[in-house]
């Protein structure tokens, strides 16, 4: 559905994006992950057609961005971090305007508005003036304008920024619903959000693509981690783990009185054997779990590798 090949972008002599290539299949939600200034927004702006790449190509549903930019724009829907809303318009009037701007015939716009109102969960707000809507609803109107013309690719820049927890849950549901029949790419600085919403992750660091794949695939590229909590002295647990042949790293965690807890890193996924060895060594295991910040660990490892 979407092919990005060798995307490069210079701002003067500064290379904001260097030879980035990835693809997005129909029905797939891809998360763009990177630190501030990594090149996420530049990538999204190029995909949206508001910025021209210095080199490389973007093809969406067979249409090349350079050869036919206006046709390409009819195939994309873009929600920037701050939704492009006219505060004086009602939701319906705004969506009608957005549809006409995307080149839709008037009759098609009218029949499409109820569909996107439902998809973006805006029922009951159709005649409300946009300026009076809450931040969460404004984001939804932004999403509705991005999909009014039934695009092949939906681009969402930080779609959950500024939303409260209840709105985040709703937005996650809305985004999941968008992927039917189209590709979705979103950027977020909230790693947990990427992890929960996206099928695949593209990691960009210093303008370069450093990794891409599912969370599990990215995990395999790095170390395997687990959190072990046992009864007993923390020192005993950490020194035993450090001496174990499978273990490449141990990080002690704070635990309740009488308990010891640590994050354990291994190059191969042999968690069952490690736990069996712990039991064999006389440790009373209280809890074994995945680290909460697993994606964060992967991300930091990837960006650190790239930097060194």
């Amino acid at each position: 559905m979407v092919e990005v090949a060798g995307l490069t972008r210079f701002y003067g002599d500064f290379s904001a994006l260097s030879d980035v290539s990835f693809g997005i299949a129909e029905g797939e939600i891809v998360g763009l992950l990177g630190l501030n200034g990594a090149g996420k927004s530049t990538t999204l702006k190029i995909l949206a057609g508001t910025l021209t790449p210095s080199r490389g190509s973007v093809t969406i549903a067979g249409v090349d961005a350079r050869a036919n930019p206006e046709a390409l724009r009819s195939r994309i829907g873009y929600l920037p971090e701050e939704p492009p809303l006219y505060r004086d318009m009602t939701v319906t009037a705004y969506l009608r305007h957005a549809g006409r701007l995307k080149g839709m015939p008037a009759a098609r716009v009218e029949s499409r508005i109820p569909e996107v109102v439902r998809l973006a969960d805006l029922e009951g707000r159709e005649e409300q003036v946009i300026g009076t809507l809450s931040h969460g609803y404004k984001k939804r109107v932004g999403i509705a304008q991005a999909i009014i013309h039934d695009p092949k690719l939906v681009i969402l820049d930080e779609p959950i920024s500024g939303l409260d927890p209840a709105q985040i849950v709703e937005m996650r549901r809305v985004i999941r619903g968008l992927a039917t029949g189209r590709a979705v790419i979103l950027s977020s600085h909230i790693l947990g959000e990427i992890s929960q919403t996206c099928d695949r992750i593209v990691v960009i660091h210093d303008g370069k693509l450093v990794a891409q794949g599912t969370e599990a695939e990215l995990h395999q590229g790095g170390s395997h981690k687990l959190v072990v909590t046992t009864r007993g002295e923390p020192e005993r647990l950490t020194s035993w783990l450090e001496a174990h042949s499978l273990v490449t790293g141990v990080r002690r965690l704070d635990a309740e009185e009488g308990l010891a807890s640590a994050v354990v890193s291994m190059t191969t996924d042999e968690r069952e054997r490690l736990i069996a060895d712990l039991v064999g060594a006389g440790f009373a295991i209280r809890l074994v779990e995945d680290p909460e910040d697993e994606l964060e660990e992967i991300f930091l490892a990837l960006t650190k590798q790239e930097a060194t």
Binding site: A48, T50, G77, Y78, P83, P84, A98
Partner: peptide, 13 residues
């Protein structure tokens, strides 16, 4: 106001 994005991502030249 940031609404220029709507115009620039539209099919309008």
């Amino acid at each position: 106001n940031g609404t220029e994005v709507l115009l620039r991502t539209s099919t309008a030249s």
